[in-house]
Design a protein around this nucleic acid. Structure first.
Lengths: 342, 342
DNA sequence: GGTGGGCAGTTGATCGATCCAATCTCTCAC
DNA sequence: GTGAGAGATTGGATCGATCAACTGCCCACC
């Protein structure tokens, strides 16, 4: 009856069991190449036998790094197809685990303040952040960068091309261009845009794909564009308005800035008794779950969220190792998921 | 030029600034009522002035609690409407923050092993877990409980009513009964069930709501039930099969075990040229985003995920305070979100 | 007047890992 | 045979908080 079994094994316990010192056990874990092979084996056995895992708090305290990455989750918006985070978060968690990190979730209340970020950083709860809600340019990126908070952004620093923080983004322009090409190939010549109000950089990026691509195909964009909020209702209203013209001016296809808007367009189309598909094309953006399961299934631009997550983690790695980043940003190409509405 | 400004303030720094001892500062944070009001104010000022937040690693090491809750995220399934986690996760994060905790995400690989859970617990990375994927009974709950891992489950221990771990669940039976009542009120008398294969406790619970409620209304269930996998395709196949009978035997409404299945049913209905709504009712389960934005919008049973999250956190609180739980489980009532398909 | 008790605040030890500098053990060259 | 030097291991100090025990101090009570 040696020792009470209740307390978890520590470095010292393992060291004693293996007949070596604490430091040797620590080296076995952190720099195994420093040990003689036979010693390493002996230590490993003791570790396995005792079921030892190093205490994170202790390691964290000493090394001054928690091996945690902060990710802010904001309130889920109802009635909108914006559930693309699921896919992203999962890959992010998987990728971070590969490099020995975990993801910590937090909320930041209603208004954007740096407080929660700084608090987590000051208390050494996380080593860095991943920013995702860079919807309207990213004001946060600016103030976080200014305060020396380490982070990688999913989204370009639109408003400040000189920003030096690492970021990853998806080429919205190219995504919409893909959609336009596809619709043109299907024979459409009057392709409308349903997007967001001016002021959103992402929205303008996506829209520019529509404008330039139509022009490159020698097609007109005039009287084919609608702008408003990112809601189902606006999508429906916009479609009604765009279709309420003389037959020869009527668009035969809609490219939308989001799946939410596209679903709104589909609703209008349904009310008017038109059948989406070859005759009337509709393309969304995000390839949300709703796009996949609704009837008719929505053709949509798919962001390579898995790749984005991997790149974000790569950026985090460089950031935390204080490796200088050559070019801070990376733009990835989306693909088109073709379904029934085109 | 006192001290290099780089390093973050610690208890000692604050203590010196306020002219008190470390412990007094610690007390100011953890048991303010131990201090004389004027001392408390003085310490508070120093804390604010220096921008001090206690180091979590150090606190964690000493108190043996990380104030982190582990939540496993599994691979997002494509082509299925199961995105109900978003809503749950957000409320969970918010509720845990209120009681001073944070949520840590992790994955458990493909097969279910207790390894990742035990590893996180052994290394003191988390204090407890929240289990959510208790889809088919919950095997994990059993082995986690057996190994003394503290957790609260979202989902009943169907296979072991004597289990003592805390859990929260939603009454699937009642949810489906709600759907049946609603359809009966709309005048339907031949109401079909599209659900999962036998062997899933949740599936049987939901189905039982359909069976007993129809019988209570004096309606028949014979030849009105289909069972299969939780996919869009099966929903479509099942609907085709159920509708392929003599007109007077044909169901006029479908209650489904999930939104995914309901979307499949809608697809079949669409192909057959029927219009869902008053004449042909379809009700799903989960009130997923897809249900909300698709056309026609799907009537669906809505789980009170916000309440569930709050209850889960309450359970965690009791668990971590070693407060004995009287009755370990709590069943919450779902509601019905009525939309166009009924 | 001595004891006892509550209040306010202090000090040293401790949690479990890693860092650091010093030591020990070889092997090999001269 | 000795010293250099790399390879492997050691004990002590440290990260920053909390715990436990202790010191004054003041007032009440017998």
């Amino acid at each position: 009856m040696s020792r009470h079994d209740e307390s978890a094994p520590t470095l010292a316990t393992v060291a004693e069991a293996a007949g070596v010192s604490r430091q040797t056990v620590s080296n076995a874990l952190n720099s195994p190449d420093l040990l003689r092979p036979e010693t390493l084996v002996r230590v490993q056995e003791a570790i396995d036998r005792l079921g030892y895992s190093p205490n994170r708090a202790a390691r964290s305290l000493r090394t001054r790094s928690s091996h945690l990455i902060g990710l802010r989750v904001d309130a889920a918006v109802e009635d909108s197809a914006n559930a693309l985070m699921d896919r992203f978060v999962h890959t992010l968690v998987e990728s971070t685990e590969v490099v020995g990190y975990h993801v910590l979730l937090f909320t930041a209340g209603d208004h954007d303040t740096p407080e929660p970020y700084e608090e987590l950083l000051r208390s050494a709860a996380v080593d860095a952040f991943v920013l995702t809600d860079t919807f309207l340019g990213n004001p946060q990126a600016a103030w976080l960068a200014g305060r020396g908070v380490p982070f990688v952004a999913f989204g370009r620093p639109w408003d400040d091309p000189t920003a030096r923080h690492p970021w990853v983004d998806v080429d919205g322009h190219a995504g919409v261009a893909l959609a336009v090409d596809h619709l043109v190939e299907r024979g459409h010549t009057r392709i409308a845009w349903v997007g967001w109000q001016k002021g959103s950089f992402i929205g303008e990026d996506r829209r520019s794909g529509w404008v330039t691509r139509l022009h490159e195909h020698g097609l007109s964009t005039s009287r084919l564009s609608a702008r408003g909020e990112d809601t189902l209702e606006f999508g429906t209203r916009a479609a009604h308005a765009l279709l309420d013209v003389a037959a020869e001016e009527r668009p035969t296809a809609f490219v939308c800035a989001s799946d939410t808007l596209a679903m709104g367009v589909l609703r209008a189309v349904d009310v008017l008794g038109l059948r989406p598909g070859r005759e009337l094309g509709v393309v969304g953006f995000d390839d949300s779950i709703a796009a996949q399961v609704c009837t008719p299934a929505l053709t949509s631009v798919r962001q390579p969220l898995e790749e984005v997550a991997v790149e974000v983690v790569r950026g985090l790695g460089a950031l935390l190792a204080h490796r200088p980043v050559g070019q801070p940003g990376r733009v990835l190409a989306p693909t088109l998921s073709i379904r029934s509405t085109s």
